[in-house]
Write a protein that binds this DNA or RNA. Structure first.
Lengths: 252, 252
DNA sequence: CGGATTTTTGACCAATGTCAAGACCGGTGG
DNA sequence: CCACCGGTCTTGACATTGGTCAAAAATCCG
């Protein structure tokens, strides 16, 4: 079992992003593409640094923000995994997403001017806090920052339509596993084996399935040799086959 | 049958938004809130007018833009109804949304820098075209325009998570009908009776149901006195009851 | 070690999809 | 004005995926 069962190795588990220094910002950060590429004006870079505040650690179950709170800042996950969710008046949960290091949360709070969901740490989490008023002022001064914000927002619209379609449990789960792998890969982490930080119930809720169904499908995927699962440790052993299942959902 | 069966009256059917003049922009337009409120600088207003181009008419089935086209502009629907949809490689359609006068389309195209979906007129449609490069330059100069763009983008993220949850056919249909009513009302149109411009199959696809299910549920709603349907003409006769069904979805 | 939580597994069930046929509707042309 | 035609919508019979319920097994922590 390569990669599985090696608690000593901290390799792909709970990866923590580079902290960055005065010149190089967190390398996996959502604003990395604005800052890192040579060009950016020293003063502008400093201003971006100025408005960022590192906060954490949060522990499993802690709230980064709560539904209904006044919106004041965007957050980038720096380490750990964050789940966003809504509760309706009867307490039914709806999981909106899982957020990896380098990804932004709170974008859906700009318009209503309050957070529309809870953001909850699934393990030990560090985040960067971007004061939004400060960020928009900077955006007005630096076109690249403005464009980056437009991009982040626009990408999120696309993302949310991804899992919105009508698909079988197999397709959804395959797409889910590959999507996580792709996102880990995009941030430079190992992506053929990773830890499912969230409980089955959260995966199920996110994919609009019952937890039992997730369990069964995972079992079958393993029997078919597509994956190896051991609790929350996961290895993708036949990506092409998974991709074939997921192709309707992961078009692009 | 109030409102139903009166083809002569053009009241709530195919409503067309006010055209606006040099000072007053289309009153239902997505940028109305930026322009109309007294304050806005005359020059700025002119600049906003400068970059807008009225285009149309489009007729049922015409494309406003196509999936894969290079992104260059956002569009606001000025009259008629537009459906956005994606096709996967096997031609399976996924309806992303239906867009009413005053609503913006193309926001999901900013990041990929190409339109990720088709926008198709469902009836006779007029739109406003906002050149995006011009718009972002203006946004950098005028904070209200920048904020308005952030708001539009952010609201769209929230919107797409609305119908993403796991709900029964009844709940989804009730929420769909009320959502349309609310959106018509928000733009100042009659909202207790309106025309479903799209075929049942599109509604079904959007809600992840079979067309037959939509037909059956609509029938049952009518038998229960919640609505009156006659072909595509619709009247909401018991909003409270519909709201009760839809409350899990339409929280807020 | 022990209790709580999570996950798995099996048996059964129901909501919704699928298939097929027929009704309806609007437009067209004779 | 009416008959026909293609598309849309409705309705019924039946099939199936995935949900629910219940219980056992595994896992996690303190």
């Amino acid at each position: 079992m390569t990669q599985l069962h090696q608690p000593g190795k901290l390799a792909p588990h709970n990866p923590i992003a580079d902290d960055g220094d005065d010149v190089h910002f967190c390398s996996t950060c959502a604003f990395g593409s604005v800052c890192l590429p040579a060009g950016l004006d020293k003063i502008a870079l400093n201003e971006l640094h100025m408005l960022v505040e590192h906060v954490g650690p949060f522990h499993a179950g802690d709230h980064i923000f709560r539904s209904g709170e006044r919106f004041g800042a965007l957050y980038a996950v720096r380490a750990g995994m964050v789940k966003t969710r809504q509760l309706d008046d009867e307490g039914h949960e709806q999981v909106l997403g899982f957020h990896l290091p380098g990804e932004m949360i709170g974008l859906d709070a700009i318009h209503p001017a309050k957070y529309p969901c809870d953001a909850i740490a699934l393990d030990t989490v560090f985040v960067c806090r971007f004061s939004f008023p400060a960020l928009s002022m900077l955006a007005a001064k630096i076109p690249d920052v403005q464009q980056r914000l437009f991009d982040l927002l626009s990408a999120d619209i696309g993302k949310s339509s991804r899992f919105s379609g009508d698909h079988t449990a197999d397709e959804r789960l395959a797409a889910f596993l590959l999507d996580l792998a792709n996102r880990y890969a995009a941030r430079g982490f190992a992506s053929n084996a990773y830890r499912l930080v969230m409980p089955r119930a959260d995966i199920a809720n996110y994919l609009r399935l019952a937890a039992e169904t997730v369990s069964r499908v995972l079992r079958r995927f393993q029997d078919q040799g597509l994956i190896r699962v051991d609790g929350r440790e996961l290895e993708l052993t036949d990506k092409p086959a998974l991709l074939k299942l997921a192709r309707h959902i992961l078009r692009d």
